[in-house]
Amino acid sequence: MKILIVDDDMTVRELLRVILKDYTTFEADDGEKAVRMYQELKPDIVLMDLFMPKMDGIEATRKILEIDPEAVVIGVTAFHSNKGDELMKAGAKEIISKPFTRKWIVEAISRYAKV
Score class of each variant (00 low, 15 high):
M1T: 11
L4Q: 09
I5Y: 07
D7V: 03
D8Y: 13
D8E: 13
E14W: 08
L16D: 00
L16Y: 01
I19F: 04
K21C: 13
Y23H: 14
Y23F: 13
Y23E: 06
T24N: 05
T24M: 09
E27H: 08
A28P: 06
D29E: 15
D29P: 02
D30G: 07
K33Q: 12
V35M: 05
R36M: 14
R36G: 10
M37F: 15
Q39A: 14
Q39T: 11
L41C: 10
K42R: 12
D44W: 03
D44H: 08
V46E: 03
L47I: 09
M48R: 02
D49V: 03
D49F: 02
L50V: 08
M52K: 10
P53V: 05
M55N: 08
T61F: 02
T61H: 02
K63G: 02
I64A: 01
I64D: 00
E66S: 07
I67S: 02
D68Q: 01
P69E: 04
A71S: 01
V72M: 08
V73D: 03
F79Q: 12
F79I: 09
H80K: 15
K83I: 13
K83G: 10
G84C: 11
G84N: 07
E86R: 10
E86G: 10
L87M: 13
M88C: 05
A90Y: 06
A90D: 05
A90M: 06
A90F: 08
G91S: 13
E94I: 02
S97T: 06
S97N: 05
P99E: 04
F100L: 06
T101N: 11
R102A: 09
R102S: 12
I109R: 06
I109D: 01
S110I: 11
R111I: 08
Y112L: 12
Y112I: 11
K114W: 12
K114Y: 14
V115M: 15
V115H: 14
